[in-house]
């Protein structure tokens, strides 16, 4: 499969935070999700990947080119939605569209206004009178209106009401159907994005701590509920996020597929029970000090 975006060893230092040697590759046609706690570096990483900020070290290639060589072409093909979109505050949405349109090779004005209508954003309103969620929707509308093949979104569902969030998730799924367009989104609340993501990247403290296909991930991570003493010592010691309660204990295992055999006995006798883990459960086990 084609790689639409490839980052190698991205490093970026701020006073109080750094991206350290982040490498990732995003396949064409996929929906990839970057998850992690606050201050994990998701926004910074996305800004570098979308050509909004330079990295101090390392490289980014999108559609096979670097931003330094093909900035205009790449920004035409990428739709970026920041966490807190910035627009000229005293201008109307309509004015912004007229401002931006000439710069895009494939601006779709009709499509843009149709999206605004669906999103219930009034084109005649000034940006400063839009709510946070409406600004996000405006940013999304712009990103979808210039023929972009890659969407890079930073916490797009935050600030959206439940109806718009569902509509956005559906729209993102529709966007990639067909295999020639890609979505890369970051969120720290696994609230909606985890449903549609196929590939999961976990970021913590400026580093990639895990990367896996979502289905594979959820197949091997399970909650094990057990009566004290019911588990073989080796298995019990391998559990993470263990909670010991008066009437039984629980722990998370990332190795379920290999432990299935050893657990068969205790499972049958009812001294051990299994449960599915959520993406949030797995992420918490990767975060230091969670």
């Amino acid at each position: 499969m084609d790689t639409v975006l490839e980052a190698t060893d991205l490093t970026k230092h701020y006073e109080d935070f750094s991206l350290r040697g982040v490498s990732l590759a995003i396949r064409a046609g996929s929906i990839s999700g970057i998850f992690g706690p606050n201050a994990a570096g998701k926004s910074t990483l996305l800004r570098v990947l979308a050509g909004q900020a330079p990295a101090h070290q390392g490289s980014v290639q999108v559609f096979g080119s670097a931003y330094a060589d093909a900035e205009q072409d790449l920004k035409n093909r990428i739709g970026y939605v920041p966490q807190e979109p910035v627009f000229y505050p005293d201008k109307t949405v309509q004015w912004l569209a007229r401002f931006a349109a000439p710069y895009f090779a494939r601006w779709d004005g009709a499509g843009f206004y149709k999206l605004l209508d669906e999103f219930k954003v009034n084109p005649l309103k000034k940006v400063k009178h839009l709510s946070g969620g409406q600004k996000t929707l405006l940013s999304i509308a712009m990103a979808l209106s210039h023929g972009a093949e890659l969407l890079i979104l930073d916490e797009p569902t935050a600030g959206l009401d439940v109806v718009h969030r569902r509509a956005l998730l559906d729209r993102l799924r529709a966007f990639v159907a067909g295999g020639d367009r890609t979505v890369l989104a970051a969120s720290h609340i696994t609230d909606g994005l985890d449903e549609i993501a196929e590939e999961i990247w976990f970021l913590d403290d400026g580093r990639v701590v895990a990367h896996e296909d979502k289905d594979d991930l959820l197949a091997r991570w399970k909650w094990v509920h057990f009566k004290d003493g019911a588990l073989p010592k080796a298995i019990e010691e391998g559990l993470v996020r263990v909670k010991r309660l008066p009437f039984g204990s629980s722990g998370l295992t990332g190795d379920f597929l290999n432990l299935r055999g050893a657990l068969a006995g205790p499972l049958a006798s009812g001294d051990v029970r299994l449960d599915n883990a959520t993406l949030e459960d797995v992420l918490l086990s990767f975060i230091k000090g969670a």
């Binding site: 009566k227 009437f247 029970r273 449960d275 959520t278």
Partner: peptide
């Protein structure tokens, strides 16, 4: 007595 609750349980 062995009672452990799971939020994900149907």
């Amino acid at each position: 007595m062995f009672v452990v609750l799971s939020p994900a349980h149907p």
